[in-house]
Nucleic acid binder design. Structure first.
Lengths: 337, 337
DNA sequence: CCCCTCACGTGTTACGTATAACGTCCGGGT
DNA sequence: ACCCGGACGTTATACGTAACACGTGAGGGG
């Protein structure tokens, strides 16, 4: 039957006994002072009866806007980015916006043309944890752009939403120092993005102010295996063994824990391990990880809000979201020995 | 400059000295025998110069199809579903298709109306791990539908892509039995979907054929905390303690490991633990989990292929993908004691 | 009594694309 | 000489919506 053909605004108009233009006005919400309350009600009722849904393609064509945003993330399989998406999608949904993801092969940035024919038409872009130059194509294209976790941009640049990463690292360092740790190795992700640069720098700065502090650094890829290898290097390096491993992420911390156990060391009795991100992994491990909770959903949500504001021409001041240390079982005072 | 307004097919036509219709023919690929090679080349060259991209809204309006699929997943923050998405997006991309996700608040199925704003914009739906009745609205709406991980459908029903879950469970049971285990507790997810029903049933069936086998079952929510509690119950239940915990997922296995350690038991020396899914979590834990690897990306990819076939009116036979046991360190022969 | 204004709608158009329905030119068969 | 048909394009139209620019009465001020 006709169940498959969806009703158009003209069908609604016919049912309500008005013209298509009136339907558009009423349902578009811009009818105040142009259509009587009675007529508007009739239109709305007819639309309800027919289960009318506006044809988005036609609307987009007419308006030149699609109410769709592109979210660029390095890898959706990383829980952090999945959560960023979730937050962004929630806010988008509240504003009748859609979100499409940049289908990037794991880890690659938007090297491919995001305006390729396949991708949905886009009103704006939200890019997370991208090197700024990786987005030059988008900026040149004149598309509204919001950057997440990329550091405070230059004035006049795209709006930004950042986490207080430096503060988070400071909390970790103070936590460790407060427990009595002085020999600390920073297990650093070998990734050249703002967030990791800030972490490295903050660890240095914060520890520089502590008497007797000794900082070492081991770099590795952002994965368990490499982290384990790096932690082994850290724990078997010549000189006195570090009493704490400060890791750039929970995933690295997991590797560090494996390394410690492999060397016959107990966590946290012989060596403390701290993470970052507070992924579900943090409480799946045993001992549970002391880590820093990142409000990933909020990052996505604020990013989407910023984009919506930008599209409205509203001012979009840079945002920085606070982060919090979550002390758990993987850190304790260093061995007295 | 005019850099912001994108060129239309008419602009290309003007540049190439032909009509808009010819541009559409050439770029649409249906010009054989209707347009000379020379002209076609001129059109393509002009399109290249102007960096012409067809307006997708206009195309969708004209064709009544959007080249976009909706992927419904319970929760993107579960690594399995993120990987399903990745696979689906890859195939979609290869066919100039887009994928949008159903923006479902964690865990809820399409309780909200998937036709809200999205329906107009999609050509079909891929639903993963859904209870069949949760999708009645979609089926009724006449939208092409493919179901993932929902079991072989009735003939005439929507195409399906499933994992050989039963075989995976059989491999685990045989692995444990082969190691010598007889008292096994199944840590079962308290979720009423096909995949988990099959697992419970298969464990029963497979163990029924083993002399002296004793099967117990503990149900819990699909999370670390509840799993830990359930595992504690299992390990402290009256009677002889099980020597192996067969878990319905790596997440549950993580909880089981924590429970064991909390009770002073070593994994795998005192109790073996097996997982399912082979998430990155499986190798982040210590000991690494014996588990079953699920080709999540393939599930998504095959699902998208099936949907594309369905849209082409091609036959779409049910698919079942094989799974493989990955033996690791969390299982060993039971204590001889 | 006439015209202006306001309240309430309607006719029409354009958005950019794909395609059905037409030309037009030209060589060849009869 | 006439018609036919293939090769090569073009003209015109529809998709469904939003919004501009007009009607059209009714009521009121002058």
């Amino acid at each position: 039957m006709a169940g498959s053909d969806r009703p158009t605004s003209r069908d609604v108009a016919r049912a309500a006994g008005v013209s298509q233009a009136t339907v558009s006005l009423v349902l578009g919400g811009k009818w105040r002072g142009r259509v009587s309350e009675r007529t508007a009600d009739a239109v709305r009722r007819a639309a309800g009866e027919l289960e009318y849904r506006p044809n988005l393609a036609a609307r987009s064509l007419r308006l030149g806007r699609t109410r769709t945003a592109l979210l660029v993330v390095p890898a959706l399989t990383h829980e952090y980015f999945a959560r960023v998406y979730t937050g962004a999608a929630r806010v988008a949904d509240e504003h009748d916006f859609g979100v499409v993801l940049y289908p990037s092969p794991e880890g690659t940035g938007p090297a491919r043309d995001p305006f390729g024919s396949a991708r949905a038409a886009i009103d704006g872009v939200i890019a997370s944890s991208m090197a700024a130059d990786a987005l030059s194509g988008i900026a040149d294209g004149g598309l509204p752009l919001v950057m997440l976790d990329s550091g405070p941009g230059a004035a006049g640049g795209p709006p930004t939403v950042d986490l207080a990463v430096a503060d988070g690292i400071r909390q970790v360092v103070r936590h460790l120092v407060g427990l009595g740790h002085r020999r600390i190795t920073h297990l650093a992700a070998d990734v050249d993005t703002w967030t990791f640069r800030v972490r490295a720098q903050t660890v240095r700065e914060e520890l520089a102010g502590v008497a007797g502090a000794e900082l070492a650094t081991e770099r590795c890829e952002l994965d368990v295996g490499p982290a384990r290898a790096a932690a082994v290097r850290a724990l078997t390096a010549p000189g006195r063994r570090p009493t704490a491993l400060l890791c750039d992420g929970d995933v690295l911390a997991a590797g560090a824990c494996k390394a410690a156990r492999g060397l016959g060391l107990r966590v946290p009795d012989d060596v403390s391990v701290s993470g970052f991100d507070d992924l579900s992994l943090a409480t799946a491990l045993d001992p549970e990880l002391t880590t820093v909770r990142l409000p990933a959903e909020d990052v996505g949500a604020r990013g989407m809000s910023a984009l919506l504001a930008l599209l409205d021409g509203a001012p979009t001041p840079p945002t920085e979201l606070p982060v919090h240390l979550i002390p758990r079982a993987s850190t304790s005072p260093p061995p007295t020995d």
